[in-house]
């Protein structure tokens, strides 16, 4: 029972973390109509900025604080120089250009910081486990990720549903030409949106830094799962991204946690282990395939979409 709760928490934490990266991705796709493969690179920028900031100042918090301007600036620059040229182009052009951007940013990072992974250590106060239920120790830092992630999701909801900027964003998703005709500066809106997405990705990278190694190419691993999240949730929909991310987080974690041991009850040991491992790494893609078959628009798609 304790194990189940712990694994559910792990799933929640993974899901929340995926949401932070997917949110920007889905907004940029939904509103600007751009497939941005380089979104993972912004996540990498956040992680590197935190690691470098921590090396300079010796404090994790300063590092975390540095990730935000670094990611925002990179996002702004990328939008200005590259993405802006792609709005009216074919999706294939966008994929090509942003894929090139991944290669460029990875190589640039290698030149600047080398191939060796950087190490980020947590401050003492955070690297402890707390007893949230009798007998259930859980790392404080992972709890913190859950908390901040949910809080950010709430802020995004407020921003999109209850502010003027959010209204324009929503309108831009569904009635782009109309918004433009009403004299809204879409270029500015797009840039702002891209920077917001970059900020979220960079923040996720900063949070991930102490858990995983900060290295070149770390963004691509996350990016693929995030695409799965937004496809399942419905392209362009923030609610969908949240739902998709939490679902993927749970399915992936619980699959890894219980599939192999479950299969052992019905299959021989060796066989169960390899089948279990294979199935659990496939599980999220199987889920995506099922969603695409039965509900190709995603589980929580944007309502009233005309394009």
């Amino acid at each position: 029972m304790i194990l189940l709760i712990e694994q559910l928490l792990n799933g929640l934490q993974f899901g929340v973390f995926l949401f932070l990266v997917s949110a920007g991705l889905t907004l940029i796709f939904g509103i600007m109509g751009v497939i941005n493969l380089a979104h993972g690179s912004l996540y990498m920028v956040g992680a590197y900025a935190t690691a470098i900031g921590m090396q300079w100042t010796g404090s994790f918090w300063w590092g975390l604080l540095m990730a935000l301007p670094a990611a925002a600036f990179t996002g702004w620059l990328v939008e200005l120089v590259i993405i802006r040229q792609l709005y009216r182009r074919d999706h294939l052009d966008q994929v090509l250009a942003t894929f090139g951007l991944i290669l460029f940013l990875n190589e640039l990072t290698t030149i600047c910081f080398g191939r060796a992974p950087l190490f980020l250590s947590l401050p003492e106060t955070l690297s402890i486990s707390v007893e949230i239920l009798p007998g259930l120790l859980y790392p404080l830092y992972r709890l913190l990720i859950i908390g901040t992630g949910l809080l950010l999701a709430f802020f995004l909801y407020l921003l999109i549903s209850h502010t003027r900027a959010g209204m324009l964003l929503r309108a831009g998703t569904t009635h782009r030409e109309m918004v433009e005709a009403l004299g809204v500066n879409l270029t500015l809106l797009n840039t702002g949106l891209f920077v917001l997405g970059a900020l979220l990705a960079g923040f996720a990278g900063a949070l991930a830094g102490p858990l995983i190694s900060v290295e070149v190419g770390m963004g691509e691993n996350v990016l693929i799962l995030c695409f799965v999240c937004i496809v399942i949730g419905g392209l362009g929909s923030i609610r969908g991204a949240l739902f998709g991310a939490l679902l993927i987080g749970m399915v992936d974690t619980l699959g890894r946690a219980f599939l192999a041991s479950g299969l052992r009850l019905i299959l021989p040991l060796d066989f169960a282990d390899s089948i279990g491992a294979a199935l659990s790494s496939m599980s999220v893609y199987l889920l995506m395939a099922l969603v695409l078959i039965f509900r190709p628009q995603g589980i929580l798609p944007v309502l009233g979409r005309v394009r």
Binding site: Q7, T253, R256, G276, A277, S280, S281
Partner: peptide, 12 residues
């Protein structure tokens, strides 16, 4: 326990 090649997070 067998994990996926290239896995990053090992919470589970």
């Amino acid at each position: 326990i067998y994990v996926k090649l290239g896995q990053n997070d090992y919470a589970a």
